[in-house]
Simulated scan of single mutants.
Amino acid sequence: MRAEDVKDDLVNVLFTEEQIHGKLAEMAKQIEADYEGKDLLIVGVLKGAAMVMADMARSFTRHVDMDWMAVASYGSGTKSSGVVRIIKDLDIDIHGRHVLIIDEIIDTGLTLSWLTSSLRARGAESVEIATLLRKPDALQMPVDPKYVGWDIPNDFVVGYGLDYREKYRNLRDIGTLAPHIYS
């Protein structure tokens, strides 16, 4: 689905699919350089990071192990619930591994702050974060991602894995959701 397919639902398009692919390729190149010679495990945070993780992984020119976690701090609305729950845990033992968490957005920071602490406590050699988007004005918890695609305003955005009530995840672009949709 493209932005023009849901144009009445969006205020504007922040990033096109082409811009997103370019940014992910740029980030993958830097990650490869930083982890050269290291055994890297990338961990996608479901459901939102599915698109980002898949496209970033395809941009690598080296082998990486991949796993997924599903953690949630969002309910069905537009605000964080404040409680983090593990819905699906890792299948791979991370003890002594270099772990790179891949997420689509850092909003309040609650989920990723909790997740990085949890993975470090499991004995990972290192735990870093790569995120396509970050909302600096929305941060409530200290989160310091090593790789950030773009900083964006504190607006409700959808597309490329980002949803509103499970819709818009398959939007190829990222846009600001019109308030009449969620008001």
Results as ranks from 00 to 15, higher is better:
Ile174Pro: 02
Val143Phe: 05
Pro145Asn: 04
Val148Ile: 15
Asp163Tyr: 08
Tyr168Met: 13
Ile174Phe: 05
Asp144Leu: 13
Tyr164Lys: 12
Asp163Ala: 09
Gly175Cys: 06
Gly159Pro: 11
Gln140Tyr: 01
Pro142Thr: 14
Lys167Val: 04
Thr176Glu: 14
Ala178Gln: 00
Leu177Asp: 02
Thr176Asp: 04
Leu162Lys: 03
Leu177Asn: 05
Glu166Cys: 07
Tyr168Phe: 15
Val148Met: 08
Pro142Phe: 10
Phe156Lys: 00
Asn170His: 13
Asp173Gly: 07
Lys167Phe: 09
Tyr160Pro: 03
Gln140Cys: 02
Val143Met: 07
Asp163Met: 09
Lys146Tyr: 03
Lys146Met: 10
Tyr164Gln: 12
Glu166Tyr: 08
Gly159Ile: 09
Pro179Gly: 05
Ile152Met: 12
Gln140Gly: 13
Pro142Tyr: 10
Lys146Glu: 11
Tyr164Ala: 12
Leu162Trp: 04
Arg165Asn: 15
Trp150Asp: 08
Met141Arg: 14
Leu177Gln: 06
Tyr147Phe: 09
Gly149Cys: 07
Val143Arg: 01
Gly159Asn: 12
Arg165Thr: 12
Arg172Cys: 07
Asp151Val: 09
Ile174Asp: 01
Arg165Met: 14
Gly161Lys: 00
Asp151Gln: 13
Tyr160Ser: 01
Leu177Val: 07
Gly159Thr: 11
Asn154Gln: 00
Pro145Trp: 00
Leu171Ile: 03
Met141Asn: 12
Ala178Ser: 10
Asp173Tyr: 04
Arg172Lys: 14
Thr176Gln: 13
Gly149Tyr: 03
Pro153Leu: 11
Gly161Asn: 05
Tyr147Thr: 05
Arg165Gln: 15
Val157His: 00
Leu171Lys: 02
Arg169Asn: 10
Asp173Lys: 01
Phe156Asn: 04
Val158Gly: 01
Tyr147Trp: 06
Trp150Phe: 15
Gln140Pro: 00
Val158Glu: 06
Leu171Met: 08
Pro179Ala: 06
Asp151His: 08
Glu166Lys: 12
Met141His: 14
Gly159Gln: 11
Tyr147Asn: 06
Ala178Cys: 02
Asp151Thr: 10
Gly161Trp: 02
Lys146Ile: 04
Asn154Phe: 01
Gly149Pro: 01
Gly161Ile: 04
Tyr164Cys: 11
Tyr160Met: 05
Pro179Phe: 03
Pro153Asp: 14
Leu171Gln: 01
Tyr168Arg: 11
Asp155Gly: 06
Asp144Trp: 06
Val148Arg: 06
Pro145Tyr: 03
Tyr147Met: 06
Phe156Arg: 00
Asp155Tyr: 15
Thr176Ile: 15
Leu162Gly: 03
Val143Thr: 05
Trp150Glu: 11
Pro153Val: 11
Asp173Glu: 14
Tyr147Ser: 04
Asp155Thr: 14
Lys146Cys: 06
Leu177Glu: 02
Tyr168Glu: 12
Val143Ala: 07
Phe156Ile: 07
Arg169Cys: 11
Ile174Met: 07
Thr176Pro: 08
Pro153His: 12
Asn154Ser: 07
Pro145Arg: 03
Gly175Val: 02
Thr176Lys: 14
Val158Gln: 02
Lys167Glu: 13
Ala178Asn: 10
Asp155His: 15
Phe156Pro: 04
Pro142Cys: 10
Asp151Tyr: 06
Tyr164Arg: 12
Tyr168Pro: 10
Lys146Leu: 11
Pro145Lys: 02
Val158Ser: 00
Arg169Lys: 14
Gln140Thr: 10
Arg172His: 11
Leu162Thr: 02
Gly149Ala: 07
Pro142Ala: 14
Arg172Gln: 11
Val157Met: 01
Asp173His: 06
